[in-house]
């Protein structure tokens, strides 16, 4: 249903970090809000030709979903592992 977006995944011990470069405009708000400093700039570019983000230190991710909440473009999704 509806439009689908490409997804890039990073799997960590507590959750899976999913980002859609089709949606990410590279504002960097998530980098500042992540309490575990998981997220950093990537070398790939997104929909606006700006650098997207990646989960560089995914082993520190606690799957708190703050990054997904503060993303104005809904580019980030977190799947929590049980």
């Amino acid at each position: 249903m509806g439009k689908t977006f490409t997804k890039v995944k990073w799997e960590g011990p507590k959750g899976i970090f999913i980002i859609s470069p089709d949606l990410c405009k590279g504002c960097g708000l998530c980098i500042e809000k992540c309490p575990s400093q998981v997220i950093d700039w990537a070398m790939e570019t997104g929909v606006y030709g700006t650098f997207v983000v990646e989960a560089k230190r995914i082993d520190r991710c606690t799957a708190c979903k703050i990054c997904a909440l503060v993303c104005p473009d809904a580019a980030i999704d977190i799947e929590k592992k049980n």
Binding site: K3, F5, D22, L23, C27, G28, P72, D73, A74, A75
Partner: peptide, 11 residues
């Protein structure tokens, strides 16, 4: 969903 990414600036 069809209109995403939306037209607002980054951030």
């Amino acid at each position: 969903r069809e209109t995403k990414p939306h037209q607002f600036c980054p951030g």
